[in-house]
Design a protein around this nucleic acid. Sequence first.
DNA 1: GAAGCACTAGAGCGATCGCTCAAGTCGCGC
DNA 2: GCGCGACTTGAGCGATCGCTCTAGTGCTTC
Lengths: 200, 200
Amino acid sequence: MATTTKDRLIEATAELFRHQGYSATGVKEIVDAARAPFGSMYHFFPGGKEELGAATIRWSGAMYGELIEIFYADTSDPVAATRQFFEAAADTVRDTDYTDACPIATVALEVASTSDPLRRATADVFESWLVQLDAHFARNGLTKTQARSLSVSLFCLLEGAFLLARATREHRHIRAAGRTAAAAVRDALEHRASTVARRR
Amino acid sequence: MATTTKDRLIEATAELFRHQGYSATGVKEIVDAARAPFGSMYHFFPGGKEELGAATIRWSGAMYGELIEIFYADTSDPVAATRQFFEAAADTVRDTDYTDACPIATVALEVASTSDPLRRATADVFESWLVQLDAHFARNGLTKTQARSLSVSLFCLLEGAFLLARATREHRHIRAAGRTAAAAVRDALEHRASTVARRR
DNA sequence: GAAGCACTAGAGCGATCGCTCAAGTCGCGC
DNA sequence: GCGCGACTTGAGCGATCGCTCTAGTGCTTC
């Protein structure tokens, strides 16, 4: 067997969290979905639902981080990468009946004011995504400050678009946000060029 | 007494939803917070928690809609209005210890795939906000298509910034998103001007 | 083959979930 | 003052919540 019980628990939890969030997901529901014995969950995660939740948030975050790399790593055109990333996100959301958007946004909002360990896990994941984007934009000549500002804007546009698209069941909102995002990247790169030119 | 039991139920629910979402909020918790008898809830909302939830979503949406009007209604400078709106949002989030952001985003993500009546309520509220923004931008000379695109982008930037700020407990993310939002408004208005100029 | 350990297995704990229901109080129209 | 509908009140329903606990299985190491 390729997957271990622990892996199945995390993957099943990730799927349930993305679909219905943290509070609405029961432990019983998780172990059933993972085809795992009840006791095993408390063997691997002695901290219970909260510890499993934190592990799932970090695992989902790493998965999504790899997706970001796929789009931004091997390109010298961040504008195109941004456009393609948002288009792919829109396609996925549409094709999965508006369930498969951000894997941790729902949980992040639920726990932000109610569980510090879980809130911290979501914060770490979001920050890691921003760091990834920062690096790619810095590679294209932006200063740290410029890159961070751009990364934050792209993050907000994507997460906000996921929220709006899931609520309204209209994937075109993600495409609209994607056009704004691509424009923001283009403007940032142009501003870099003009800054460099002015310095000479 | 000024407030009715029904009003107190909705207001207490709104507060709890904003803080911890839909699933984590118990009916018992609601009636306690509203200082309302248990049975009264089922008198005013025979549909139970779901009906009260829908009413709360629509009420909260109307409240926040009024806030949008305050910033955009009596100004001929949508760029400044946008900047001020995001700044005010950042201040509020900071001053309320990162609880008082979007009143319905958490619930919207929770119910998007699990309850169509509630999902529809959140969709109606979001759409009403977009319509409000559309009108203000159209008043400043943008076409319907341009206005809608801009409204969607501002919505996404704000909602994404709320998510990021609550998770990381850093209000500066909202201010960063606000700068991008203000720039997007300025660009849209400039593009309008150039289009008009070209047509002449 | 015995001992030790990681993991499986699920019955069942007390607490809480959303909700029902019968009984009651209250003010208003007649 | 009587009747009636609006609203209050809280006990308690069955189901589910997260979790604990004991027992058992199977692999590894002497």
